[in-house]
């Protein structure tokens, strides 16, 4: 496998000021889909993308089957919430610049592909190592009452910290995780609960079931400190990372995938 590429997208303000970024979250998820394609096709090396998401709700692969899905989308859209569709499973996840997302794209050539648990283990190792550098011990755990609950989420001291999900397509495995860092869990509670209540399948989330990284550390941490831990943690788990920018091909492809990622109120 060739050397891992590192992509960093941390400057939310710059993107928000760019007139072409008025749907910033959809653009980020479209870029994620474009990178997955490029890695699958061998156009791009294996990649770790560390990014701060714009605000909005990332819906799971299955959410469109909810009984009142369309009504829920219309109601949230009317409130100015940007909705996107991600390719992985699990429930809706609130996205906020208070969070940091990590997406790991690993090419898969031939068979057998890694099993689902194995892929989670292998490609969340970087996050586990990064948290260890911050003196936190993270482990896979179901946490009742947490957002988008699953057995391969990362919890610290019984509180959910990172929500993970996975996609295995021909040529690529994508494992991504959302980590509330500086705040934003109230938004998670409010918008996720509201979406499922409107969609006809209420969920019960509990604030105490989850924590931000800042809360777990009991202190403030800067973006630079976090990014350094994440980069070193992923290098420890995967090998050297080479900092690059997304290719022109990926950017152009992301534009084409935008309509596929956006969830529009009128269908």
């Amino acid at each position: 496998m060739s050397a891992w590429r590192l992509l960093l997208s941390l400057d939310i303000d710059a993107e928000a000021d760019d007139p072409t970024h008025h749907r910033p979250l959809a653009r980020q998820y479209a870029l994620e889909a474009a990178i997955a394609e490029a890695v699958a096709e061998g156009r791009a090396p294996p990649t770790v993308w560390i990014w701060r998401p714009a605000e909005g709700l990332a819906l799971g692969r299955f959410d469109s089957r909810l009984p009142r899905f369309r009504e829920a989308v219309r109601a949230l859209d009317a409130q100015g919430v940007e909705l996107v569709r991600r390719s992985s499973g699990g429930q809706a996840v609130w996205q906020s610049p208070e969070f940091v997302n990590v997406s790991v794209f690993a090419p898969v050539r031939g068979r057998p592909r890694p099993g689902v648990p194995e892929a989670y283990r292998r490609y969340t190792q970087g996050l586990v190592a990064a948290l260890a550098r911050l003196s936190l011990k993270a482990e896979f755990q179901h946490v009742e009452g947490a957002f988008c609950d699953g057995p391969y989420d990362l919890a610290v001291d019984g509180k959910k910290l990172v929500g993970t999900a996975q996609v295995q397509k021909r040529g690529v495995v994508l494992v991504h995780g959302t980590m509330p860092v500086w705040g934003g869990l109230e938004g998670m509670l409010y918008w996720v609960s509201r979406f499922y209540a409107l969609a006809g399948r209420p969920v019960r989330l509990e604030r105490d079931a989850m924590a931000t990284l800042r809360e777990l550390l009991g202190r403030d941490l800067s973006q630079d400190e976090l990014v350094e831990a994440l980069v070193l943690g992923h290098e420890e788990a995967l090998g050297p990372l080479v900092l690059e920018e997304p290719s022109e091909h990926e950017r152009v492809r992301a534009e084409a995938l935008l309509a596929h990622v956006r969830v529009q109120p009128d269908g």
Binding site: G89, V116, V167
Partner: peptide, 14 residues
């Protein structure tokens, strides 16, 4: 050739 997408444990697998 991919036949079907299956989901388990928040993973969608072709």
């Amino acid at each position: 050739q991919p036949l079907v997408e299956v989901m388990t444990d928040k993973a969608t697998v072709e």
